[in-house]
Design a protein around this nucleic acid. Structure first.
Length: 387
DNA sequence: CTATTCTCAGCGCGTACACT
DNA sequence: AGTGTACGCGCTGAGAATAG
């Protein structure tokens, strides 16, 4: 006897493989599943159809197939799919559509996840504010707290694609209005199934693919990667750019790009993982729930998280003159402007790690050189008050 | 080789619930 | 009441790199 779990797994396998040679005439998934398992699955036609529904998802289902399925469901004795496969839509068309959707989802999902986060200004690499979102750009910030769970899950694609593959999706109990015991049992069965799939060596754990924030993308050069690969890539970047402290190689001296990612001038390998976590988002909705729980603060329920490290301040006249704008300025913007200026004028001493002040900086800070780590502190002297 | 950081799947255990 | 299943919690081990 073949278990539902095995059937579900087999159906998934067959549907996945159907994304291959388009145009090749193929039998329906239930036929092939039966053949694959070596048993007659006629009595499991409804279950297999459900699994196919889950695979394609209600929104992605071809209308004609849905219509045919609705008709089949309405019939007093739905004919077994083995005996009467005849799908209303040509299999080739379904396969082509599926393949196209998979490609689109693989490309779109990481973007959509971070699209739900505050947008970077167009100047920031990978930010692309406004390109895909109508929201007005907001000033850049170093950290992106995970958006509330509801916001992220309603991206419409959560759980559909994981790193370019399509996985099974069950509505969360209580969210779809059909939280019957049967549904609960089925959902639980799905959990067991995914757990058993993991046991079989599927991508999970440390190898699980995560979405990467735009800032971190500029470092690692990918939109999705596993955590271990991200760390590996990051260390490669650090060595390439000679960003390790020669005295203590565990310490990392951030360049401009890393500073944007970590929000600090120096860090160490132990803090790196913690800082990295802010820029890594699991693609699995279950993980997002877990993460949401982790980040769930007691004083915030469903309101979007406020931007952190982003207070606006009234700046001194000297700084206003230096930056070229007056009044209230976000602290991070001021610091960013300063670093841009330093970089543009090549004022950073790569050997000592200090900043050599030109006339404008001397006028602003009143000294000839500044240690990189002390820049923020000096700049703070020009912040009059937070707004 | 160990310690150090981080995250998370897998596992064991206890509890709660549904069903017979 | 007994049984089976789901769920939550806590612990473990894994990979990354480096210092001691």
């Amino acid at each position: 006897m073949v278990s539902d779990q095995e059937i579900a797994s087999c159906v998934e396998s067959v549907l996945r493989s159907s994304g291959g040679a388009a145009g090749e005439p193929r039998s329906p998934p239930c036929c092939r599943s039966g053949a694959k398992l070596g048993v007659d699955l006629a009595h499991k036609a409804t279950f297999i159809r459900d699994q196919m529904d889950l695979f394609f998802g209600p929104r992605l289902q071809p209308p004609l197939v849905a219509k045919a399925q609705a008709a089949a469901a309405a019939a007093p004795n739905p004919p077994p799919l083995v005996a009467a496969p005849a799908p209303a839509m040509p299999q080739v068309q379904v396969q082509a559509q599926l393949q196209q959707m998979q490609q689109q989802l693989a490309v779109l999902q990481p973007q959509l996840i971070f699209q739900a986060m505050p947008q970077l200004p167009a100047g920031v690499p990978g930010g692309a504010a406004g390109a895909v979102s109508p929201q007005p750009p907001v000033p850049a910030m170093a950290f992106y707290p995970p958006p509330p769970l509801a916001f992220r899950v309603t991206s419409g694609l959560a759980g559909v694609a994981t790193g370019g593959t399509v996985s099974f999706q069950q509505p969360a109990p209580g969210t779809g209005g059909t939280a019957s015991p049967t549904a609960a049992v089925q959902a639980a069965g799905d959990n067991k199934e995914s757990a058993s799939k993991r046991k079989r060596g599927g991508p999970g754990g440390l190898n699980k693919v995560c979405a990467i924030s735009p800032e971190l993308q500029t470092i690692v050069g990918e939109t999705v990667m596993s955590r271990t690969q991200i760390v590996k890539q990051l260390w490669q970047y650090i060595r390439q750019n000679n960003l390790q402290d020669p005295d203590d190689k565990r310490k990392i001296i951030c360049n401009d790009e890393l500073r944007v990612v970590f929000g600090t001038d120096t860090t160490d390998m132990f803090k790196m993982n913690k800082l990295l976590a802010k820029h890594i988002t699991p693609l699995d909705p279950k993980d997002q729930i877990r993460e949401a729980k982790k980040f769930k603060p007691s004083n915030v329920a469903t309101q979007p998280m406020p931007l952190i490290n982003q207070p606006s301040v009234v700046i001194s006249d000297a700084l206003a003159k230096f930056i070229g704008m007056e009044g209230t300025v976000p602290q991070d913007d001021a610091l960013r402007y300063l670093w841009d200026y330093i970089k543009a004028n090549q004022l950073e001493d790569a050997i000592t790690g200090s900043i050599l002040c030109d006339s404008k900086l001397q006028e602003l800070f009143g000294c000839e050189s500044i240690p990189s780590s002390g820049l923020s502190e000096l700049l703070a002297h020009h912040f009059i008050k937070e707004t």
